[in-house]
Amino acid sequence: MTTKLDRRVFLTAAVLTGATAVGSLDPAEAFAAPKFDVEPGAPDPNFVEGRIGTITGTMLFVTGSDGVFNRVRVTGATSVWKLTPTSFEKVAVGDGLYARGVRMADGVLAAESLWVNIVNIEAHISSIGRNVLHLEHHGSKIVAHVVPGTTATVYNGTPAISDMSLLKVGGHVKVIGAWIPDTNEIQIATVYAGV
């Protein structure tokens, strides 16, 4: 934990105190077309989706929804999202994930980004309870929990705010959230609504 705090202090100083840089941004590299090495119609080798079966050290063993088995390596440079940007310790067996990274020669995906239990739901609000939205999504019911301090709401595409009071029963919403595994419940990261 100390090392993480030290790192933050160092990086903060690098941005805010105007430290001298050793180089400058090479526009040729910055604007080079991104390498796109996927055959048309073929599965993207740099993407993995599925449920975590085992965690050994920093290696995740993942079974995809199509039954394909994958190994995913997480490093200190990997971003881990689970409701909010978080750390690898929060990832648990049974979680679902999407991972993007670089496929190594031995078949392991070296993850650059990991999104754990992320869901994207278009639904109607069928009722609102104490810090909970009851959603109806294609006829199934979803219980969406508000996490005060984390949950944000975007109205009409304007910047996100924490005020949820404009949400209406019967209204249509899009919800990005974290699924609670093996339930019909989610925790809400962001609600998109029109008013």
Binding site: P85, G129, P159, I161, D163, M164
Partner: peptide, 15 residues
């Protein structure tokens, strides 16, 4: 007002 306690002074990270 069941969602009143969701409102905080903190700027959401998403914003």
């Amino acid at each position: 007002h069941p969602l009143a306690s969701a409102q905080t002074d903190e700027t959401p990270l998403h914003s």
